[in-house]
Amino acid sequence: MMKYRYCRSRMVAYINGELPPRVRRRMAQYIDTCPRCYAEYVRQRELQHELKMRVPGIGIPEAGQIERIWNAVQLQMQQPTVATPHLRYGVLIAVMVVLLMIPLFVSQPAVEASVATQPQPQTLIQKVVTPGATPVAVVVNNTLELTSQLMNVTPAAVVTPGG
């Protein structure tokens, strides 16, 4: 079985005389001594002979066919060659990418980069109420801010947060 496997995988090369001498001697020995190897040798040799004989018979041109093709070749040769620019694929891809990116830059609102700011501490707003008067001052971030009508307000009337 081992001999047969060895022979079968190398038989085509053996028949074509393409094996190194050492392998060739071994093959010849197997073919002489193993009937299965010999049968394989005969089959392959015959198939090869058939192929050599019959494959060249496939597609033999009909009468006038070669002349007909020649006329077509001549016609095509007479036509002026249209020079087509040879674009490299890389350049073509780069151009396509640029074209695809154009809409991203055109008619898009300008985006301003803003620096992140620290959030303000919670603002405590307290109304300073004077009887009979509208609110006149507020305390914002421990700062007295006057809004209007300061005339009736004394510093004592200002209530500070927590006070």
Binding site: V55, P56, I58, G59, I60, P61, Q65, I66, I69, W70, V73
Partner: peptide, 15 residues
Amino acid sequence: LYELYAAGIYRLCYS
């Protein structure tokens, strides 16, 4: 040149 190779090339292509 065509006549030298045309038949062989046709056979190859047809096969």
